[in-house]
Amino acid sequence: MYKQHHLRQWFCCFPTVAFHQVLNWQKPHLGFLCAASAFLVLAAPTIIDLPGSKLLAATPISQDLEAASFYQQGVTRYNRNDLQGAEYAFRQALQHDSNLGMARNYLGNIFLMQNRLDIAVQEYGEAIRINPNLGEAYYNLGLALYRQGQKDAAITAYRQALVVDPTIAAAQYNLGLALYELKQPQEAIAAYQQAINLDSRDANAYFNLAIALQEQGQIESAIAAYQQSLQLDPKNSIAYNNMGSLMANHGQTSQAISVYQQAIRQNPKDASAYYNLGVTLYNQGNYKKANGVLKRARNEYREQGNIEQAEKIEQLMQQIVQKTKPQQPQVSQTATTPSQTPNPTSNVAAPEQQMPNQPETLEQAPDEPTNVPVSVEQQPTSLNPAQ
């Protein structure tokens, strides 16, 4: 089954973060890969300047001049990745003015980036208590809760962030990822679509949307979403393999072959694309080309150290040899009449039952995405980056 997703998830505290892939392999059957798990892709933290942040930075953060000075020092050090210095400055600012909600939000960001999740949650909670309309604090709280495994609570925080600020595309994206992981695919699809409406250049959102649509059997829509993802990110080999698998399994063989060939052009060492292309050619009866492509797949798997898969492909190649080898008529040991003469082709070896009869996507079963929604965690965010 698909269960190797490649969900990309946004983590933005207002900065941003993401997760890594986790693959749970099932024992592959002869001739094809089969994986049943998903993997998240998280991006490295990056600071995001929100619209209007420069104006906000020029606005006094506090009537207490000492508090305002320490706050600006904290922002400057934070942006220079001097987290220890930033923490000290923000705490000094709070000693002079305890109502600096943004200072609490920054502290939450610092602790989230240090994976000190419990303290981060506390700081974001304080930021929200001080300023209930601080949308980024809700969003960042969602990130911390998600990392703690509290996905239901994270969903609530993301939704509250969107109530305060409906334009936070990353909140919609991460909301979709959390809903997907909680087996709420229709809600996840809606969230990804909203994320795309807010940011139509987000290749990961299209990719995750395609995975969810594919699992719901919405094949044409899934193919369209994969195509959009690849227009924005032409190097996503998993998207090529998933889309090719969908096409091949639904009778669009020539289109599938073209997609696998595109995948190989983008990455000449994509073993899965060679394998899927070889199986598709085999099912077309083009044994000579299939054998050559499968040989390349076998060699690439060997280079990767995946000896088990390489051996299975070797067995498939041997079966192709048997199918294409000229057969000699069998000579009966007893006299036969002409009507009893064996058919010259009666001894052609038939494919074994385990031989693949449909292409499969990278480490996945047919019709199931081979990657988990990508989680691009948009690191902790803050409204007032220093100049």
Results as ranks from 00 to 15, higher is better:
residue 186 Q to W: 07
residue 313 I to F: 04
residue 188 A to S: 10
residue 284 Q to W: 04
residue 315 Q to L: 12
residue 28 P to Y: 07
residue 138 Y to A: 03
residue 198 L to K: 14
residue 211 I to L: 14
residue 91 R to M: 10
residue 293 V to K: 07
residue 127 A to P: 00
residue 315 Q to N: 11
residue 50 L to P: 00
residue 36 A to D: 12
residue 22 V to N: 13
residue 237 S to E: 14
residue 42 L to Y: 12
residue 368 E to V: 09
residue 240 Y to A: 03
residue 238 I to Y: 06
residue 372 V to W: 09
residue 63 Q to T: 10
residue 38 A to F: 08
residue 169 A to S: 12
residue 220 E to A: 12
residue 162 L to T: 05
residue 167 T to V: 06
residue 350 A to M: 09
residue 370 T to D: 12
residue 32 F to K: 08
residue 311 E to P: 00
residue 113 M to P: 00
residue 132 P to Y: 07
residue 256 A to P: 02
residue 151 K to C: 01
residue 14 F to Q: 13
residue 368 E to S: 14
residue 69 S to K: 15
residue 52 G to L: 05
residue 269 K to M: 04
residue 373 P to S: 14
residue 145 L to S: 02
residue 387 Q to W: 07
residue 288 K to D: 11
residue 324 T to E: 12
residue 337 T to E: 14
residue 225 A to P: 01
residue 244 G to H: 06
residue 121 V to R: 09
residue 31 G to E: 01
residue 44 A to K: 14
residue 240 Y to W: 03
residue 117 L to I: 08
residue 29 H to M: 09
residue 201 R to K: 15
residue 3 K to E: 10
residue 377 E to P: 03
residue 254 S to A: 14
residue 167 T to I: 05
residue 242 N to P: 00
residue 158 Y to V: 01
residue 355 M to T: 12
residue 386 A to S: 11
residue 314 E to M: 14
residue 173 Y to I: 04
residue 127 A to T: 03
residue 253 T to N: 10
residue 374 V to N: 12
residue 18 A to F: 09
residue 372 V to E: 08
residue 76 T to W: 04
residue 56 L to H: 05
residue 57 A to K: 08
residue 99 N to A: 14
residue 44 A to Q: 14
residue 307 I to H: 11
residue 82 D to K: 07
residue 263 A to I: 07
residue 346 S to F: 05
residue 95 Q to F: 06
residue 256 A to I: 02
residue 11 F to A: 12
residue 231 Q to K: 11
residue 374 V to F: 11
residue 97 D to S: 08
residue 210 A to N: 04
residue 288 K to N: 11
residue 32 F to E: 05
residue 68 A to T: 03
residue 16 T to E: 12
residue 332 S to V: 03
residue 181 E to S: 09
residue 335 A to W: 13
residue 246 L to S: 02
residue 183 K to Q: 15
residue 321 V to G: 06
residue 305 G to D: 07
residue 312 K to S: 08
residue 137 A to F: 00
residue 121 V to I: 11
residue 202 D to P: 00
residue 263 A to T: 04
residue 315 Q to V: 11
residue 301 Y to D: 04
residue 375 S to R: 15
residue 48 I to P: 00
residue 195 A to G: 03
residue 57 A to F: 10
residue 69 S to R: 15
residue 253 T to A: 11
residue 218 Q to N: 10
residue 179 L to K: 06
residue 1 M to Q: 09
residue 83 L to W: 06
residue 90 F to K: 07
residue 261 Q to M: 02
residue 48 I to D: 05
residue 374 V to I: 12
residue 172 Q to I: 01
residue 115 N to I: 01
residue 52 G to Q: 09
residue 317 M to I: 15
residue 208 N to A: 15
residue 334 T to G: 01
residue 264 I to V: 04
residue 330 Q to D: 08
residue 82 D to A: 06
residue 100 L to M: 13
residue 282 Y to W: 11
residue 179 L to V: 02
residue 144 A to C: 03
residue 115 N to D: 15
residue 258 S to K: 13
residue 115 N to C: 04
residue 385 P to A: 08
residue 134 L to W: 02
